[in-house]
Amino acid sequence: MVVTIEEVKHLGWLAKLEMSDAELQRYTTQIEDIVNYLNKLDTIPLEQVEPIMLKKKFSELRKDTPETFEDRVLGTAYMKDGFVKGPRMV
């Protein structure tokens, strides 16, 4: 299996990661090595194995009630009129 630079670039775009050409080059080779290793999963006869199903009883979830924090909780300095400023949409 060959992992191409285009594939890594596309995945980077989907995952919103900006990468330099040098980074792309390096990651492509490394990711190809890693994916080749993961291909090991293809070598076992797994047809009869069921994926793990959860049988455990889990604890109850807390009540979904709003909570007010005393202190300033937002870590951004970019605010306007009490709202957080983000990048423009278009």
Partner: peptide, 19 residues
């Protein structure tokens, strides 16, 4: 956007800011 490190969103378009 709400927490992280100091990077002004001014002048960026949505996708390019995230990337």
């Amino acid at each position: 956007i709400r927490y992280g490190f100091d990077m002004n969103p001014e002048g960026y378009e949505w996708n390019s800011y995230f990337a």
